[in-house]
Computed example of a mutant assay.
Amino acid sequence: MSSSRRPLLAALLAAPAIAPGLARAQAPTSNPAEPERSERGPFRWRVLASGLENPWGGGFLPDGRLLLSERPGRARLMAPDGTLSAPLAGLPEVVAEGQGGLLDMQPAPDFATTAEVFFASATLVEGGVLTRLSRARLTPRGFEAVRPVLDATPAQPSGRLHYGGRLAFSPDGAHLFLTTGDRNNSRERAQKLNDLAGKVIRLTRQGEIPHDNPFAGRPGLRGEIFSYGHRNPQGIAFNPATGSLFLAEFGPRGGDELNLIRPGLNFGWPDVSYGREYSGRQIAGGRTSAPGITEPVRHWAPSVSPSGINFAPAHAQPLWRGALYIACLNTPGLLRLQMEGDAVVAEERLLWGRARMRQVLFAPDGGLLLLTDESRGRVLRLDAA
Rank of each mutant, 00 (worst) to 15 (best):
F118V: 12
N54I: 13
G41E: 09
V94F: 02
P55W: 02
L130Q: 14
R37W: 04
V149E: 13
A115K: 00
E93Q: 15
G100R: 07
R135I: 07
T83M: 13
T83F: 02
G100I: 05
S30P: 01
A86M: 06
E126N: 04
G57K: 07
A49I: 05
G127A: 12
A89V: 08
V95K: 03
L130A: 14
L84Y: 00
E39K: 12
L77A: 03
L133T: 11
E126M: 10
D110I: 01
L52I: 10
P109I: 08
P140K: 01
A75R: 08
V47R: 14
N54T: 14
S85H: 07
S85K: 06
G142V: 10
R46G: 09
E36P: 00
G101Q: 03
V149F: 02
F143W: 04
T131N: 03
A89L: 07
L138G: 06
L77D: 07
V129S: 10
A86L: 05
R137C: 01
R132Q: 15
P42F: 02
G64H: 11
G98H: 01
L68N: 05
A108M: 09
L133C: 10
L138H: 11
R137W: 04
L91F: 00
A120F: 01
L150H: 07
G73F: 03
A145P: 01
